[in-house]
Simulated assay, not measured.
Amino acid sequence: MNRTDRLYALREELRRAGPAGRTAERLAEVFEVSTRTIKRDIAALQQGGFPVWARPGPGGGYVVDKAATLPPINFTDAEVAGLAAAVAAHRGQPFDGYARAALVKALSVMDTQARKRATLVNDRVWIDYTDPPSDARIRRTVERALHERRVLVVDDVRVDPVFLARTDGSWFLVGRAGGVIKWFRLESITAARLTREPSVVIPVEEIGIPPVTAKASADF
């Protein structure tokens, strides 16, 4: 398991643990890594805004703020099959890690039979991955810049990110650099660095009018 997948799995393991929490030793055993690695991973989750904290004393461990957990939600096997197909089709694209984490949550609250039915459906959905995925590290940096509204340095260019757009078969970061709006093709970015500086909030409307075929991902 690579570090990215482990971070998502660690987050879900802590959510499932609830108020009981998990010790670093127990998490190290589950993920077959050292306790030092677990502590580094926890620090990375905290820096990313995930509400996990250390409970000191005997029987202590890492606990997730209960406000970060979802209330009981019922999913049908067809709904989860649809989610799984959408997540699979989006592999290697912006926010795909978060989408996979959401799918894990959905699967974790399903009963065994419904989960099996969803798996049977998805065994009959095949996807040919022909799009070249962007660099995962760069993609995650861009995701954080948008999510946390922070200035991003793209190939030595300072950018206030505005939005991500997919057009002509590619993903683009659209932002303001040097006082003008620029489009950066994700797969062509060679370096991206997140700064601590808050980005300027630029209304999407200032970019221009999108084509009639374009829709925000919220318009589902």
Rank of each mutant, 00 (worst) to 15 (best):
P132M: 06
G175Y: 01
T76A: 12
T130W: 05
Q93S: 01
R144G: 11
R117H: 10
E187W: 08
G60P: 08
S188K: 15
F95W: 09
E79K: 03
G60T: 11
W171D: 00
A86P: 04
A85C: 03
V162C: 03
S170N: 15
S170Q: 14
K116Q: 14
P132D: 03
R91M: 07
V80S: 00
P133Y: 00
A106M: 06
K66D: 15
A78F: 10
I189D: 03
E187G: 03
P71F: 08
V109W: 04
D160L: 02
D111A: 06
F163A: 14
E143H: 09
A145Q: 06
F95G: 02
Y62K: 05
R144A: 15
G61V: 07
V104Y: 09
V151S: 06
F172M: 09
S134E: 15
E148L: 13
D155M: 11
N74D: 14
A102H: 03
F75R: 04
V121Q: 01
A114L: 13
W183Q: 12
L186D: 01
I181M: 12
I73S: 09
A67G: 12
R158L: 14
L186A: 00
S170R: 13
R91N: 05
R150C: 05
V109N: 01
V142N: 03
V174I: 13
V159T: 03
R140C: 03
F163K: 13
G82N: 02
D128Y: 11
L146P: 07
H147Q: 15
V153Y: 08
V151Q: 10
N122L: 08
W183N: 13
V174G: 01
G57L: 07
D77G: 02
D155G: 09
I138D: 02
G60L: 11
G179W: 08
S108V: 02
A78K: 14
A114G: 12
S108R: 06
A114R: 12
A86K: 09
A145W: 05
G175D: 04
R144V: 13
L107F: 10
N74E: 15
R91V: 02
A81V: 02
A145L: 07
T167M: 12
L120W: 04
R176T: 10
D156Q: 14
V151E: 02
R91I: 07
A106R: 04
R158F: 09
S134D: 13
S170I: 10
P56M: 11
G179I: 06
H90P: 03
I138L: 03
V125R: 06
F172A: 00
G175E: 02
A86C: 06
V125Y: 00
V174Q: 09
S108D: 04
P71Q: 09
T119H: 14
P94W: 04
V109G: 04
Q113Y: 13
D77N: 10
D135M: 07
A81W: 00
D135W: 09
L103Y: 01
M110T: 00
R124N: 13
P161H: 08
A68F: 07
V104D: 12
R149I: 11
G57H: 05
Y129S: 10
L173M: 04
Q113C: 11
A177T: 03
D156R: 15
A78V: 14
F163Y: 13
G179E: 01
A165M: 12
T167G: 11
G82K: 00
